[in-house]
């Protein structure tokens, strides 16, 4: 088999349908007109093999960057600060602190107003109860395993340190001593 022939088998031709109605008329000048004889061929071939290579490259790239854990839920009212020396996210209970609300995995867990009014660090009882329940639930679901004690705080950049420290200590008292702050990734070159 010649090389030309082998290559041509990998191409998908697009053929102009052409005229069909007057093909049966046995007159040479009619047939010539009917098949478009004498004019440049308008048939084209699509190079399928490079196209498949391209698709495979896209598939491999997308598979490599595929995340099975899904999208991280970020409260729309929270504007996160950015930092350089960060580590990758982990799956853990998410405590969001917006302007005046504390939210655990989408459930309201107290207000920051009480902390600010008291003007001193204090335990947030509602948050403490919810986190403690989550811990107990984890222990029931995973008997015999060591509890990781990790919680992630999503804190708005304008929230004061007093509120952050209060929530931090509350989470620690509820059995989450390893607290992470969710931040945006700041490139070293920025």
């Amino acid at each position: 088999m010649s090389g030309q022939k082998a290559l041509s088998r990998f191409h998908q031709p697009i053929q102009v349908p052409g005229r069909r109605l007057i093909h049966h008329i046995p007159l040479p000048f009619v047939v010539k007109k009917a098949v478009g004889g004498g004019q440049r061929s308008v048939n084209q071939e699509i190079p399928l093999i490079p196209f498949i290579d391209f698709l495979l490259c896209i598939v491999l790239f997308l598979l490599a960057s595929f995340s099975a854990t899904g999208e991280l839920p970020i409260d729309k009212n929270v504007r996160l600060p950015k930092a350089e020396n960060v580590i990758d996210m982990t799956e853990a209970p998410m405590v969001a602190i917006t302007g005046n609300q504390i939210i655990v995995d989408g459930t309201a867990a107290g207000s920051t107003r009480t902390i600010e009014d008291a003007n001193r660090m204090q335990r947030v009882d509602e948050l403490f109860g919810i986190l403690k329940n989550k811990r107990e639930l984890w222990k029931q679901v995973n008997p015999g395993k060591e509890f990781p004690g990790v919680a992630v705080l999503q804190v708005d950049r304008r929230v004061t340190a007093l509120v952050v420290k209060s929530v931090f200590q509350t989470a620690a008292m509820a059995g989450y001593p390893s607290i992470s702050f969710m931040v945006g990734r700041l490139g070293k070159g920025n």
């Binding site: 931090f168 989470a171 992470s180 702050f181």
Partner: peptide, 25 residues
């Protein structure tokens, strides 16, 4: 392949989120 590309594009997570660890004593 096109179906696979479409699925992976739809489910892709382009997140720039990270975390900074702290430790309660």
């Amino acid at each position: 392949l096109l179906c696979l590309v479409a699925f992976l594009l739809v489910t892709a997570v382009w997140s720039q989120m990270a975390r900074i660890n702290a430790d309660a004593k």
